[in-house]
Design a protein around this nucleic acid. Structure first.
Length: 187
DNA sequence: GATAAGATTAACT
DNA sequence: GTTAATCTTATCC
């Protein structure tokens, strides 16, 4: 399936990604989960890694929509983004929380966490649960071992739009989106 | 070459 | 609510 539908601006992509499914194949095992919380970032936004142009770290965000941008932060966590918009414009959507579907036991083991609500309710947590690291930076999400499948759309009245979490610039921008009432949202 | 900050998390008080 | 853990990257000498 083509991921051409991600060639839209980051805010639209962040909305469209809610409800979509992420499928990870690892060690002969299949893990899957549904996107319930996202944040939009783009080159014209001072809070975005791409604001000051292309670097070795953020290069994949200037690539084709539907690919992954994975970065390492705070000395211990990875964060998973989905590139959107047109090539050469650095934009993407941070996946902040997922609702576990398949492979819950395996993920509980790797996370050392047996409460499913706390399994993938944060950007660093879901990367640990799915075994996402820098090796997947730039990966085409229409191909294994990490795929994105369109689902939804979520009804507009079920999407909550708020300020983003954990940033120091552009704190007032309403670029965080999550599914109303979903128990797997980070906060 | 040095330094400060970071799209976080878990464990405390 | 506060803080430690831990290290890469961007930015500035």
């Amino acid at each position: 399936m083509s991921l051409k539908w991600l060639e839209v601006d980051a805010d639209q992509a962040a909305r469209d990604l809610l409800g979509c499914k992420v499928i990870r194949e690892i060690n002969g095992q299949t893990l899957s989960a549904r996107i319930v919380e996202t944040e939009a970032y783009s080159q014209d936004d001072p809070a975005s890694h791409t604001f000051r142009g292309k670097t070795a770290r953020n290069g994949s965000m200037f690539g084709t929509a539907g690919h992954a941008y994975v970065y390492f932060t705070y000395g211990m966590h990875y964060c998973f983004n989905i590139v959107c918009g047109l090539p050469d414009f650095g934009a993407g959507v941070l996946i902040r929380a997922l609702e576990p579907i398949e492979g819950i036991e395996a993920m509980e083991a790797i996370r050392n966490q047996n409460d499913v609500r706390k399994l993938m309710n944060g950007p660093g947590k879901l990367c640990q649960a799915l075994g996402i690291n820098r090796e997947l930076d730039g990966h085409d999400l229409s191909e294994p071992p990490l795929r994105l499948v369109k689902e939804g759309p979520i009804k507009p009245e079920l999407i909550v739009n708020t300020t983003r979490i954990g940033i120091s610039r552009e704190k007032d921008a309403l670029r965080r989106f999550y599914i109303k009432g979903n128990p797997f949202v980070s906060r």
